[in-house]
Amino acid sequence: MAIHHGRGFACINYPIGMNLGGDPSQALVHSTPDGKFKVTLSSIDLGQGIKSVGRQLAAETLGVPVEDVFVDTADSDTGPHDMGSFASRGTHRMGNAIIRAATEARAQLLEAAAEELEVDASDLSTDGRGNIHVKGAPSRSITVEATATAAQFNQGRTLAGRGIFLVPLSEVDSDTGEMTPVSSFAHAALVIDLTVDDETGAVEVQHINSAYEVGRALNPRLVEQQLIGGAWMGVSHALYETTEPLYPDRSHGPVDFNHYLQPGPGDSVPHHISVLERPAPDAPFGGKGPGEMCANPVLPAIANAVFNAVGVECDSLPITPEKVLRGIRANGGARPQGRPGA
């Protein structure tokens, strides 16, 4: 009886945005008289961070400090229409809508400042710290706050913008499956190191090395939390979870977390991540939504590593100790395959 080491690989791509399109998102941006901007949406923040990403996209596009932007979302009386937070569409669709709304508001802001400075709006730029200045002449400037006050109290001008982003609907061909599913794909590749105990069938993941290509990490900490959490979810799918352990039989279904197994804190796996950024041409600042895809490569990589460790094909999930042990017995013992890539 022994502990066997195994190493497995998998790589994937993931379609970003609701498949086949036809799913608009809208955003509204407006300024208070002292130059603070409100972004109004109907996105849902499930923990993925769309409020924060939306705030950053708005601040960057407006050219104002992020502290001066606040996102208010999901009140159907005030927020314009959005299809919802699913299908890796939040950052892609709503992000683009926010950029458009913020772009229109920025144009109003620069026009108002141009009137105050008596220059042409196209000669103006922002410094991201709350000032608007003449390009190449930083001393000829006015604050965003003073501009907003002047716009609303002297000029009678709103500093507001509207944005909508719609990927037009694609039909699907009945005979060939021809379609335009999405506009961009995120990518991931992953190496899992694990051990298999040939006496108990227990699988223990030791390390995850991963590379995730996300277009652009709009907020690196939010990207990392998605990737770490998603990989944890992948480990859980591969080794622990199911609502129907005897599928397709429905008996013995778990009804609480005592019976619905997931890895505990002591089972979290050291995860070494590389982030790659190949900006997608139609995504906001090139950023693709990383959240949905990140569990996917973990499942096959674990199954491939289990085969590498003991020579058992695990083609149905989850990979329980019982399945591993039965496989080892059917093979007449563990059959380690040797370390790949050595």
Partner: peptide
């Protein structure tokens, strides 16, 4: 378009010491 599978494979192989 905008493919990056190969680079993702290369990056993780490098990271994991997979020749």
């Amino acid at each position: 378009k905008n493919c990056a599978l190969i680079e993702s494979c290369q990056a993780v192989a490098h990271k994991a010491g997979w020749r």
